[in-house]
Design a protein around this nucleic acid. Structure first.
Lengths: 200, 200
DNA sequence: GTTATTCTTGACTGACCTGTCAAATATAAA
DNA sequence: TTTATATTTGACAGGTCAGTCAAGAATAAC
């Protein structure tokens, strides 16, 4: 019997995600969110509980999308090492000129980790997923001989995740794309077969 | 003839820095700042103009301290490569158990880069200084044979800065110290003389 | 068509926010 | 001591914030 909802929940989250991503949590007002989502106050509070709930939904969406993109890149490229390189270089590509928008995952950690356990949990699961994906790529690359046999895939995965996060910060600071590419290349070179002692 | 200031400006900045560092810019209220600084409202506004001015002063102080610590570490350690390793490992040491407090410089970039040109300028000069210091260390290490001759010091400096930033994000997320150490070791290994192709 | 249920709309609340004002206080030169 | 100047103090103002309330609107079962 109830009156059906007039707005699309997924699209509302999507738009809220855009606003949170742009301004962070604290600097985003509910008014901005409502305007972007195109819905009324009560609708938002009924659907998400409060600003915090909406933020968690948006962050979850962001991470899901991020990981999906990562896996798709893996599928689209011929070799795992090329995929890794592609993923790192994508940071430079996403910042064509001037400062990059930044990574919402990192933003959430930096802004909220000190006071929001929910965000911490989400962030950890997201990074764990990414790290594991890198680890699998390295393992496969090792099997193919694209990566040196002495490389420990666990630590290599951690290293690549760290590099990715560092690149995102550099991009946000406004580093030149060529600089980002150089760093990515440096990290990739650390995995190549020639160095016999690149493990932990 | 004027009545002299009763509070110590430097110490006030120091305390404000602590609060901003802990909560970020938006989530910090002037009330919190005043209480931490132990001064009255008008004193703060007279000395720093507004909240934004106080933030810039605090951020500047943070970066100066950060860079001083970096250079001191360089002086205290026998070899430049050991200094680099020390600097990277310090991130792990600063996060003994659980989440690290994080880096205020990164925090400022993530939170403010989109809307505050002053912060961007400060951040860039800070990172440039750090990058240059790394570059010099690598150059010296190369001269000593601790780093492979094919390593491009410019790119190595960028790479190390990126790694440092990535490590700080990982530490803030709550990565285990051993994991951070592993990543630092991985990055250092990329510089060692044995690999003949670790340049750009 | 009636009714129960939910969604939507817009006004509203109390709290908090940054920045300002004016008066009181303290100093150092004259 | 007088006086000019600056600091301190506490109250205050305008605006914005997240979240609530109540009434109107729309739907599906009956």
């Amino acid at each position: 019997m109830p009156r059906p909802r007039e707005f699309d929940r997924d699209e509302a989250i999507e738009r809220a995600m855009g606003v949170f991503w742009e301004h962070g949590y604290e600097a985003t007002s509910t008014e901005q969110l409502l305007q972007a989502m195109g819905i009324g106050r009560q609708s938002m509070y009924a659907a998400f509980g409060d600003k915090h709930g909406l933020y968690l939904a948006a962050l979850e969406r962001y991470q899901a999308r991020q990981n999906a993109a990562l896996l798709e890149r893996l599928r689209a490229v011929s070799s795992p090492l090329a995929a890794i390189e592609d993923i790192l270089l994508a940071v430079a590509a996403d910042a064509p000129e001037g400062r990059a928008r930044g990574c919402m995952g990192i933003q959430s950690i930096v802004e909220m980790a000190g006071r929001d356990p929910d965000v911490v949990l989400l962030a950890r699961s997201g990074t764990a997923l990414c790290e594991a994906a890198f680890e699998r790529m390295v393992a496969e690359a090792k099997r193919r001989g694209e990566v040196g046999p002495h490389v420990d895939e666990r630590n290599a995965g951690r290293f690549l995740l760290t590099t990715l996060q560092g690149l995102r910060i550099s991009a946000r600071t406004g580093a030149a794309p060529e600089s980002l590419r150089a760093v990515a290349g440096f990290a990739i070179a650390a995995l190549r077969p020639t160095p016999p002692s690149a493990s932990s």
